[in-house]
């Protein structure tokens, strides 16, 4: 079972994170300050860390910087009340793997942790992705459902690649927008829905088992059920 270290000084938030991750079947461990967190992270065997940006004593940025200096490569999700774009860049430069703004949607947080766990586990990036009878060739840049070649636009290809790399995981709209387009803002009412809808029409013809599933109120998941 994957173990996640939660470094968070606020008890309520920490409880929330623990509860949500446990619901996803993850083992959690909580520490309330940066110094202890750093010590545990160095010594323990964790698969992922959630790290509050602002901690008493040693702050989150220092923790993650030190951690990387010690050569610990455990993926870190930075959680911060500071949503400024500069803050995000600073957090990621210091060695964070992803950045989430408080208050966050627990589903979103869990989805991001899952992605981090997955990325960490399969460090190699395969050039051929397969989910059920769906195939994505990243060298030829072609997509096939069974024997049918799918005619995808570049954006749709990128979107599909992202969904397939994280198949079986719930991906939120914000995560998709950030990963596929590289921007960090609310893209408006239903941008992602429409893009997913188009991809879905090409990917899941009526006669086939659908691969893209909507998780209501959270996001999307691509998997063969």
């Amino acid at each position: 079972m994957a173990r996640v270290l939660i470094i968070e000084d606020d008890r309520v938030t920490a409880d929330e994170i623990c509860a949500e991750l446990q619901r996803y079947g993850l083992d959690t461990e909580w520490v309330g300050d940066g110094a202890t967190g750093l010590e545990r992270a160095r010594g323990g065997f964790y698969d992922a860390i959630t790290l509050d940006r602002m901690l008493p004593g040693m702050d989150g940025l220092t923790v993650v910087t030190r951690l990387r200096e010690y050569g610990v490569q455990t993926p870190v999700l930075m959680i911060s009340a500071l949503s400024d774009a500069d803050e995000r860049v600073r957090g990621l430069r210091a060695g964070g793997d992803d950045y989430l703004t408080k208050p966050f949607n627990p589903d979103e947080m869990a989805a991001r942790i899952e992605v981090l766990l997955r990325r960490h586990a399969g460090a190699s990036r395969p050039m051929m992705l397969r989910v059920g009878d769906l195939q994505l060739d990243l060298i030829d840049r072609t997509a096939k459902r069974g024997d049918t070649l799918l005619d995808l636009l570049p954006t749709e290809f990128r979107l599909l690649e992202f969904l397939m790399r994280h198949s079986g995981r719930v991906l939120t709209r914000t995560m998709i927008f950030e990963a596929v387009w590289g921007y960090h803002f609310d893209p408006g009412t239903n941008v992602i829905e429409v893009h997913i809808g188009r991809l879905r029409r090409k990917l899941d013809p009526p006669e086939r088992e659908p691969l893209i599933h909507t998780v209501r109120g959270v996001g999307y998941v691509l998997e063969a059920r």
Partner: peptide, 15 residues
């Protein structure tokens, strides 16, 4: 935002 987020996750759980 914080209580609203909690409310949302509770509603989500209920759902």
């Amino acid at each position: 935002r914080t209580p609203l987020t909690r409310l949302r996750s509770q509603l989500h759980r209920m759902h």
